[in-house]
């Protein structure tokens, strides 16, 4: 069976600038991978390439073995579920209707008009994100953290084999960050390939099976946390060293 995601020398050049250069990687089922890198390293662009939102200008992106450009938007959404960094919801729609968009492929209906199976998937996702209690309220009345959990529920509700999450811990307090990492771990254990771009290196080190490090559009390290986040990489890519207490200091 083909891997949920494979990139073959994928690159993206925009306005004469290489945002992603020659990235090759494969994400297998059942793993939780964290993507880290300094600001502007190309994490968001790499995730959008993988999600099929922007086509690569060189190389190939395959979802479940199929070139992403050959898939219709609806087929693509069955293979990958993406949490954008910019989590927009334009209107005062209810949380359940935003979460229901995770099942958009099933007719694009709001929550109440979803089929039984699709609605059950949305309910499960909301419960797992701890969002069931406030999901019937309008998004505009929710706190930033509550909205973030609705959007995460939307991503889980798709029940796709590949999850791509761009900074899923933004706007969350420490406890909810831990809860989200636990949910991502469950998703991996359920056989999905999970890729999360994170800023916090300690969280990546603690939770990931595998860490990808990007710098200047290139994949500069790929491996288990202890090797991908070695003191050498920390100094070279992030310009930090680990202090004795497990914190970080500038080089």
């Amino acid at each position: 069976m083909s891997a949920p995601l494979s990139l073959e020398a994928a690159g993206l050049i925009r306005n004469d600038r290489a945002l992603v250069r020659h990235v090759s990687l494969e994400l297998g089922p059942g793993t939780l991978t964290c993507l880290v890198g300094p600001n502007g390293a190309g994490k968001t662009t790499l995730i959008k390439l993988a999600a099929g939102i922007i086509p690569p200008t060189s190389g190939a992106v395959r979802l479940g073995g199929e070139a992403v450009g050959a898939l219709h938007a609806r087929q693509r959404a069955q293979r990958v579920s993406w949490l954008p960094q910019d989590r927009m919801s334009a209107w005062a729609m209810r949380g359940v209707d935003i979460a229901a968009l995770g099942q958009f492929g099933q007719g694009g209906a709001p929550y109440e008009r979803l089929g039984d199976n699709a609605r059950a998937a949305v309910d499960r996702a909301l419960t797992r994100c701890g969002a069931a209690s406030f999901a019937h309220r309008p998004m505009t009345e929710l706190s930033g953290g509550e909205r973030a959990r609705i959007h995460l529920a939307r991503v889980l509700a798709a029940e796709a084999p590949l999850l791509l999450l761009d900074e899923p811990l933004n706007a969350l307090d420490p406890r909810h960050q831990l809860d989200v990492m636990a949910v991502l771990r469950e998703e991996a254990e359920a056989g999905r390939a999970v890729l999360a771009a994170l800023h916090d290196l300690a969280t990546a080190r603690r939770h990931a099976d595998r860490v990808l490090v990007m710098d200047g559009g290139e994949l500069v390290a790929d491996g288990p946390p202890e090797t991908a986040l070695s003191p050498d990489i920390l100094a070279r890519v992030f310009a930090v060293v680990q202090d004795g207490a497990g914190g970080l200091e500038p080089v």
Partner: peptide, 15 residues
């Protein structure tokens, strides 16, 4: 309905 997530967001959910 999908576009409430923005254009990229809508494309991401299969619209």
């Amino acid at each position: 309905r999908a576009l409430t997530l923005g254009e990229e967001g809508a494309s991401g959910i299969g619209a």
